[in-house]
Design a binder for these strands. Structure first.
Lengths: 214, 214
DNA sequence: CAGATTTTGTTCTAGTTTAGTTCTAAAAAT
DNA sequence: ATTTTTAGAACTAAACTAGAACAAAATCTG
């Protein structure tokens, strides 16, 4: 994944941005990791950008953004010897859902979400990552992971994954109105959509939500 | 599927990346699994790449990525409800947190929350149930369960459990301002509180959030 | 606001160290 | 006896260090 130098620089950049609010300069970085020339920093940063740990705004000074950090976990978590286990399940993580975009068709077998058994009851479940802010007033934020229970009917007021015209999937509150359904965003900047029931398929209802900070 | 050498090497690579954040070199690997030459490592890695357990960025050093791990075989744990087991942890659920109520008053050692190991990294954690709407604009709603990492310092912008005057615990965004701290609610109907740093103790920072519907 | 100044980022060259690959042969296992 | 695994050396390539010169961005100044 990373070389030790790359890793140390990444940690230093992240720490500095968090503590001071602004990005260190190349000279500050070279002092911090003990180099005498900043050309090496340049190469390290290029490597980190290439690996998608950093992004830099082109033609700006002190304009680095940390995209992710290597997940450093205690070894007990990966000691797969069956000691620290709880009853649990793995459900597929199907990708992102956003207003106006279909769920990514790829069901990547590698993307799985582990859940304690207590979070899922009978039935079949899958997970999606939220993109966009159309449900923000329901406390569903960009980047949240939602756990969806596969069902094909829902009650008024349920938050559902709705597939429109077999093309576009979206997470909205549903309200039935005769032969029509209303798909209600929870953000006053967005409009409720009213569609013939025949064009809308319920693909599941919101069962739980997980958000990770930092 | 995998030979014992391949399996051990894969676990070692995964463990090293997770613990240190960076990828081991071939020499480190050969020492780790007890070989005297690194040419054998090369063959093992090729085999792991071919079986899609590893990916390597071409023409890069220390640029391995673990794609998947062999399935966990829960040998002794009894499956519950036909469900599987996963690596996991249990953390204490201390009760509700709301403006004006100390945590300890409602602490009950018996309430535990099970989490998949992937949700907690190094450190000690506890869980609280949110009461009230003072953080609603941060997507934290009444009834949500928050997972708190026990630490006693935080950075500006972190959402923390703050204990005021050893009496009152509250979940707020923290901002340090010299000898003072600001405790910032995320609801325009509430006021930011500015307190001398001596009256405020950080009891943990928000690590993740779980919400269950229905 | 324009121009000057300083700070910051980029590029180049060149050399050192570290890491990865390939090949051959010996040793072990089947 | 054949195949697989291991060891070792030789080689190629990437990572790292350093210095300087230059270009661009940010800041200062009148």
């Amino acid at each position: 994944m990373l070389t030790p130098k790359q890793y140390n620089l990444l940690l230093y950049i992240n720490k500095t941005i968090r503590e001071t609010g602004c990005c260190p300069s190349f000279d500050e970085m070279k002092d911090a990791i003990g180099l005498k020339s900043k050309s090496g920093i340049h190469a390290l940063i290029d490597a980190l950008v290439e690996r998608n740990f950093l992004r830099k705004l082109p033609h700006k000074a002190r304009a680095l953004e940390v995209l992710k950090l290597p997940k450093v976990r205690p070894s007990t978590v990966v000691a797969l010897d069956g000691k620290d286990t709880i009853p649990g399940v793995e459900i597929p993580l199907y990708g992102k859902i956003a207003a106006g975009t279909p769920i990514e068709a790829i069901a990547n077998e590698n993307d799985k979400l582990s859940l304690p058994a207590g979070m899922v009851y009978s039935g079949s479940y899958y997970a999606l990552t939220i993109e966009g802010d159309s449900m923000i007033e329901a406390g569903i934020m960009d980047g949240d992971t939602v756990i969806i229970k596969k069902v094909d009917t829902a009650n008024n007021g349920d938050i559902v994954v709705a597939l429109i015209d077999d093309a576009e999937a979206t997470l909205k509150e549903i309200k039935k109105d005769g032969a029509y359904v209303h798909l209600i965003p929870k953000n006053s900047a967005y409009q409720t959509r009213r569609l013939p029931a025949s064009r809308v398929k319920v693909q599941g209802i919101l069962s739980s939500l997980i958000r990770t900070y930092h």
